Simulated assay, not measured.
Amino acid sequence: MQWQTDILGDDFQACAFEAAGPDGVLRTATLVRHTPQALVEARKRPEEAAAGQDATAAGAGTALPDRAVLFLHGWSDYFFNEELAEFWTGKGFEFFALDMHNHGRSLRPGTHGGYVADLDNYDAEITAAIGMIGSLRQDGRAPRLTLMGHSTGGLIAALWADRHPGVASQLVLDSPWLEVHGSPALRRAARTMVEPFARFWPESVIRLPERAFYWRSISNAAEGEWALDDAYRPPHAFPVRAGWLSAVLSGQSRVARGLNIDAPILVLISGASANGMFWKESMRRTDAVLDVNTIALRALSLGRTVTLERIDGALHDVFLSAPRVRADAYARLSRWIAAYVVD
């Protein structure tokens, strides 16, 4: 493994690697880790960690973490939320994020941004990333893992956790894309229409109206507060291709049939949605991407222990919302950690 200073600065490192999917194709992914200086020093002092000395940049009173978080971004996205990493590190976790293949740091010339023909193709890189996380520990023990996913990354995380029982100790989903707008009937109709294109012309582009409303609400190049790299997170997202859309609809159908995730699950969503072809001021304080009521209902299909938190004023990524709103989201996440993350 070759770790290099990440685009987010000295407190982050990145490592690109290759993993072969079930189809045998090697794909590039990038693991990012939060490495504040105090945590680096703690890795050098296992005897101090064992004695319970502080190992966080903020002095949060945690020893060398035996818990880790792996974050999966959404579609047409990448990891950039330093505040989220600092939150988890402050709670006594090692924080990692995965830029999956054809996204963000893992984009390569000649490939279609955001494209995947089967969500199972992410399995290999997720599994490899978890192995890399375990290999970093001096004691050789894999830390207890919390898997976290946003939007399409939330759908991917849920499906992965269902297929790999016992690996993730907790699952945190931030506005997971578990269902299409409206109803399952619309998903079934869309799947029927897209399937022939996905089978014969999987990389063909499906022409849909381009909207940059969500980007407008988060980017500091528009009306948001977050510095985004437009090459990694395009304002209008990557082109929608038939194979990718078929893969997402297939994954949502699996969720609709019911998963059996054995870990406690937290689902965080906005209190309301705003949709339409034109900008509305309400899009500054709602989910302008997903139908949150549909997601709330579908979340009950994930497993036996599901906690749902609806956060008034939240955007599609609740942890990119206005400061007051995301403070509420972090407080709810902290409460859930206290209840479900057992030392």
Rank of each mutant, 00 (worst) to 15 (best):
H103D: 11
V205A: 03
F12H: 01
G24Y: 07
L171R: 08
I295N: 03
G149T: 06
A327S: 12
R144D: 12
F80S: 00
C15A: 13
L147V: 12
G90N: 10
V255Y: 05
A117L: 07
T111L: 14
L107K: 03
L302D: 06
I130G: 01
F200V: 14
F197V: 07
S217G: 13
A60P: 05
M283C: 12
R187N: 13
A14S: 15
A338P: 03
A57S: 13
V289N: 01
C15P: 00
A256C: 02
F93M: 14
A256P: 00
T305F: 09
G166S: 12
S151D: 13
A60M: 15
P109M: 08
T56Q: 12
G74H: 05
V180C: 00
S219M: 10
Q252Y: 01
D287V: 12
A222T: 10
I156R: 09
G61A: 09
L72Q: 07
T111A: 14
L84H: 11
D230F: 00
R163K: 14
A49T: 04
T127Q: 13
T62G: 08
A314P: 07
V240G: 04
A142W: 03
S282P: 04
G271T: 05
L315E: 10
R188K: 14
L147Q: 11
G153N: 05
A198D: 02
L333S: 09
V180A: 06
A124P: 07
L297K: 12
S246C: 08
L290P: 01
P36W: 08
G166P: 10
H112K: 08
A329F: 03
L249R: 09
V292R: 04
L308V: 10
N81L: 13
A124T: 11
R27P: 02
A142T: 15
R257K: 15
V248L: 15
H101L: 02
F200P: 00
A274H: 10
N275K: 06
L333F: 10
F87P: 05
H150E: 14
R254F: 02
V318N: 05
A247D: 01
W244Q: 08
D343R: 15
A263E: 01
L8R: 01
A49W: 04
N121V: 11
S246A: 14
A222E: 15
D174L: 15
R310T: 12
A16G: 03
F87T: 08
R284S: 12
L147I: 11
P165K: 03
M100Q: 09
A212Y: 00
V267S: 07
V255S: 01
P36L: 09
T127N: 13
R188L: 12
Y122F: 15
T146W: 09
F17H: 11
D174I: 15
P235E: 05
V292L: 02
W244V: 06
R298I: 05
V205H: 00
P235Y: 03
H73W: 01
P109L: 08
L178Q: 09
Y232S: 04
T30A: 04
A231R: 08
W177P: 00
R43W: 11
L300A: 14
D6L: 00
I130Y: 06
P46S: 10
